[in-house]
Amino acid sequence: MSDFDIKNIAKLASINLSAEEQKKLTKDLSIILEHVQALSSLELDTNIEDVFIHPLEKELKLVEDIEIDSLTHKDALSNAPESKDGKFVVPPSME
């Protein structure tokens, strides 16, 4: 836990944290991470390859390549904070 870098984690998660929040969250997360350390003592014979993502080990079902109508253009943009000429608009994404 000594190398817990809250700034890097916040950057990966794309959340702007104030200095105060950084301090508070570092403390909270340290407590939780210490608790989950309980797992490190666990002897595990299970290979990761044997793990299924679905808890009931269901297999993925593939679907037919047939079009289904869905959102209208208007509905798709109905919640857009900003849009222009039928496109969503955001501040520049290239620096």
Binding site: V63, D65, I66, E67, I68, S70, L71, H73, A76, L77, D85, G86, K87, F88
Partner: peptide, 27 residues
Amino acid sequence: NTNTKMFCRCKVVDTDEPNISLCPTCI
């Protein structure tokens, strides 16, 4: 060159008209 998208059944379109083949999944 499938008819529909990878994880939803919106048609793959070749057009300049923006945002016309969308569903909750692909946005």
